[in-house]
Design a protein around this nucleic acid. Structure first.
Lengths: 354, 354
DNA sequence: CTGTTAGCGCTTTCAT
DNA sequence: ATGAAAGCGCTAACAG
């Protein structure tokens, strides 16, 4: 990659032709004599020459064939599923994908975006970090195509692809209400992120629809990780009027809640945003808001490429549906092995997007 | 990114100076008069100019400040955890990370690697696809620094960072043997990949050490996904001499096995490679070979940067340890809620690396 | 301090 | 069909 820094000049010399001819052979190669082409190709193979794309693309209308994806954390299953979808589309468009993590730092995100502009990526997909974008926004607008994923910083214009956070949360909570629960806790992550706000909104709406009073004592917001969610759950469950069911904001919250319930030996009913592997094997009944994260990535990338291709239509806001997967644990009244069948989870379609 | 294609020339004109002066301001900017710098910076801000890194790096010893990571599938938790570690190190070295998925296709991997060479990435990390590398190998050697992750194609020279697949599998199977099991099935993924081979080796060694006969009827290899693993499990369990415990090759296999056991209502003991979230909440006792995948990514990236930095010492082969996490489900003889404590899993350190 | 002048590796007219 | 030459946007001597 750097050790092997041969240039067309070297090839030209080896083949006894001019660089222009080598260039012709390397590219489509029309107007090159058969014998010459053979000579040149042989020289290329022997030397192991690979044309320098950087120099190639220096000339024309700046096409780096690269797009960038900015996320908070690559290891998060939601992020990596999105990345997967983006990569698929990028590959189909012969583009390479630059992935960077911001770790929830707007400052870092700003630096990153600047760097990407300097590298002249053809476009970028950003799952925006929560924070203050003042004085940064005017810059953004000037840069090329940007599509936001899952959320968009306030005040920033731009295309965005997101989930039906509101509808998904609402449906999940409705499910708990349908099962007779009245005291339903909300265990949430960062409440300042728009995603969290929408989910909380869905929770509240479901309660309102059911004429169920919203007790603020049932809320626990801004839990950073599973451990915090677990602690919050323990606190809620040992309070004066403990909940009979819990709705968890996202997958990390769900894990924390389930772990806490397990430790407490409590078996409240649980609903949560984001799917969980093996949820159907748990002893606790769970209802999970599920969706196709890879599709989120695909759609966002498709939209981005459409913009890169020159589409300057009005701003788009694509909302992808969620569905609720209800897992019923096997009834504990049968003793010993039970052959209760495939335990297919009930799959309820979500109501129309908000 | 492309719309905004201003050049230093534009800035120079706007500020009434030469491009060289603009260049000086953009870079460290020594030897520039205070007044001039102000003028130039103002022009830069007003125009929203961002220097073109591509042109910047065209000159010197080819430093693109970019490394690439090639994996099979971004969404896989193992891959994305590795990517996470790589990204951390890349960022600390002021490099950007190009990630591509091969989807287990050597041909695609070859094309990809060529493209990366053309883009003059400073180095690459590759989780090699399984397949035939003939006629491709000589090329690889010429290119710059490459570090393999998790496995290395046969015959290819290069640094490699991997897990103690052998030791981890062996320890897990030993655990099952210690618990009195004699008929232990092996449910595995692609057996042609070296990783799978090592794990199978560990399984066999553990059996041999215990003087336990290796019944080929207990083996099920080359299961592509969780569904295949589930089917295989059902087949094994309904055979003539069903196993009393199962070892699963990797996380997808474990999921399939657990799902199948759940459907069958069977409660064999399970051990598996790769950790599983919420495993401690399952009704089935599980022992999981756990490790720090992010650390694998970090170490590989560190090694790569050391090579990029000029380290031409002997080839390295870094083996990272695994540990076995044993999850005991709560005893079912207590009825109702049980306060059996935190259910901390036993964590056994692995034996020395193979 | 600042401007002028060569290139970096490649593509692309324009001649021949 | 092939070569010579002029850049692409920027950096780095080299002069003033």
């Amino acid at each position: 990659m750097n050790a092997n820094s041969l240039t067309m000049h070297d090839v030209a010399r080896a083949a006894g032709v001019s660089v222009a001819t080598v260039s012709r052979v390397v590219n489509d190669g029309r107007y090159v004599g058969e014998a010459t082409r053979r000579k040149v190709n042989q020289a290329i193979d022997e030397l192991g020459f690979q044309p320098n794309r950087i120099a190639q693309n220096l000339r024309p209308g700046q096409v780096t064939s690269t797009i960038a994806l900015i996320i908070e954390d690559i290891a998060n299953p939601f992020s990596s599923a999105i990345a997967q979808g983006v990569e698929e589309v990028a590959r189909s468009q012969d583009h390479l994908l630059l992935i960077s993590a911001t770790h929830r730092d707007v400052g870092q995100q700003r630096d990153l975006m600047r760097e990407l502009v300097r590298r002249r990526v053809d476009g970028m997909l950003v799952m925006a970090a929560d924070g203050d974008y003042t004085g940064f926004l005017p810059e953004i607008e000037r840069w090329g195509p940007i599509v936001f994923i899952d959320r968009r910083p306030r005040g920033v214009k731009g295309d965005v692809v997101l989930l039906d956070n509101y509808g998904g949360a609402r449906q999940a909570v409705q499910h708990l209400l349908d099962r007779g629960h009245r005291r339903i806790s909300y265990v949430g992550g960062a409440s300042s992120v728009s995603t969290g706000g929408r989910r909380l909104g869905g929770y509240r709406q479901a309660l309102r629809d059911a004429g169920c009073p919203a007790d603020p004592a049932l809320l626990s917001l801004d839990n950073h990780d599973a451990a915090a969610a677990a602690a919050a759950t323990a606190r809620l469950c040992t309070g004066e009027q403990p909940p009979t069911a819990i709705f968890a904001d996202n997958n990390r919250m769900s894990v924390g809640v389930l772990q806490a319930l397990h430790r407490l030996g409590a078996s409240l009913e649980v609903a949560g945003f984001d799917d969980l592997e093996l949820a159907n094997l748990l002893a606790v009944p769970t209802a999970l808001v599920s969706y196709d994260a890879t599709e989120v990535g695909r759609r966002a990338a498709q939209l981005l490429f459409s913009r890169i291709g020159g589409d300057d239509g009005p701003l788009r806001r694509i909302v992808l549906p969620t569905s609720l997967i209800v897992h019923e644990p096997p009834q504990p009244d049968h003793s010993g092995t039970d052959h209760s069948g495939p335990a297919t989870p009930a799959l309820l379609p979500a109501p129309a997007a908000s």
